[in-house]
């Protein structure tokens, strides 16, 4: 009813002479405000966004949440979304939004900040940081010799009930999408159901997996590489270490956090949103990501986090990151194999 009433108001007002357009100087004087949906936590990106507000005179309204939930929200909202920018944990969510035509194309000078394989073929998103899938383990309980060479080995009886994963987590889901690309749906489905049969334990969050490994609740956990360092910062003796599986293993996928501007944003908001994307790719912010969160910077010339192999030297499976947008297919597979309800 209210919507109808509003629509009716609109019709009536269109009879009147159009209101004078705001003068360019007038709109420049007040700080523009845009809404950002952030699938990355406030703790990680809050300070960076605050610095952007200060430097660029743009006010940000940030809604933090899970990447998948925010992507779902954007789909529900469609063209009516208040959001101008989406910061995603992974390329699966921005890929899925690209497929639904919800993201605008970014200008070439922003895209060109990162190598070609770290941005969308359709130019709708650009990678901000890189993260590697790893297996976290506790050196005091599991020796290096015991560690599996590939994630495919985790279905063996030796690991029964000793592995943890986070099937509701966006990073895990994009890892599964990558595995589907590398091995095909059938082999992936078999791996998933074998893992489930092998008593792999569900966790809600990656951080919980790392804790559970250090505490001895499980021996191995499938996570992104950088969670570990948050714990090591608080406690240098924290009993956990990252293990990288063999070259080209689906378990060593390099994934990205990414940013996109919504197609539904008006011109002013889109402009401010593009500024934010460019800001995240500035040398200083890229270096800050490497230092504060131990993620890989994607811009050439910015050094990798301390103690980590440079991104170029890693040997992830040969998967085109722009092809990882079939999140729905992955969710279907997770449901069919009973990994998620």
């Amino acid at each position: 009813m209210a919507v109808l009433a509003l629509a009716a108001c609109k019709d009536k007002s269109s009879d009147r002479p159009p209101a004078p357009a705001p003068s360019p100087t007038g709109s420049g004087a007040t700080a523009p405000e845009i809404t950002v949906y952030s699938g990355r936590s406030e703790k990680l990106v809050g300070p960076i966004l605050a610095a952007f507000e200060k430097e660029h005179g743009v006010k940000l309204k940030v809604r933090y949440g899970e990447t998948a939930a925010l992507a779902t929200l954007l789909l529900e909202e469609g063209a009516r979304s208040p959001a101008a920018v989406f910061l995603a944990q992974d390329v699966g969510a921005v890929g899925a939004l690209t497929e639904r035509g919800l993201l605008a194309t970014l200008p070439d000078e922003v895209l060109a900040r990162v190598p070609e394989r770290y941005r969308a073929e359709k130019k709708t998103w650009v990678g901000v940081t890189g993260r590697v899938r790893t297996i976290v383990y506790a050196p005091s309980r599991t020796s290096e010799a015991q560690l599996p060479a590939s994630v495919l080995d985790l279905t063996q009886p030796a690991w029964k009930g000793k592995v943890g994963w986070a099937p509701q987590n966006a990073s895990f889901q994009v890892f599964v999408t990558g595995m589907r690309k590398a091995l095909g749906d059938e082999a992936t489905a078999k791996w998933l159901s074998d893992m489930k049969k092998n008593g792999t334990r569900d966790y809600a969050k990656n951080g919980a997996i790392v804790q559970a490994v250090a505490a001895g609740e499980i021996a191995l956990g499938l996570v992104n590489h950088y969670y570990l360092y948050q714990f090591l910062k608080d406690d240098p003796a924290f009993d956990a270490k990252n293990h990288f599986t063999v070259a080209k293993d689906p378990g060593s996928l390099v994934n990205l956090s990414a940013v996109g501007v919504l197609a539904s944003a008006d011109a002013a908001a889109a402009k401010a949103g593009t500024q934010l994307a460019a800001y995240l790719l500035s040398d200083a912010v890229q270096a800050q990501f490497a230092k504060d969160t131990n993620e890989y910077p994607l811009v050439a010339g910015v050094a990798a986090p301390e103690g980590l192999k440079p991104l170029a030297e890693l040997e992830p499976p040969a998967i085109d990151l722009s092809s990882l947008g079939d999140l729905e297919g992955t969710l279907d597979l997770l449901r069919k194999t009973g990994v998620t309800p």
Binding site: E66, A68, T72, L75, E76, A96, E328, L331, P341
Partner: peptide, 20 residues
């Protein structure tokens, strides 16, 4: 307690089923 009764499933679908 990780038991897939209806409320847990609804919450999961709300968060990540991609289709509300």
């Amino acid at each position: 307690l990780r038991y897939d009764a209806l409320p847990r499933v609804i919450y999961h679908q709300f968060l990540s089923a991609f289709d509300r």
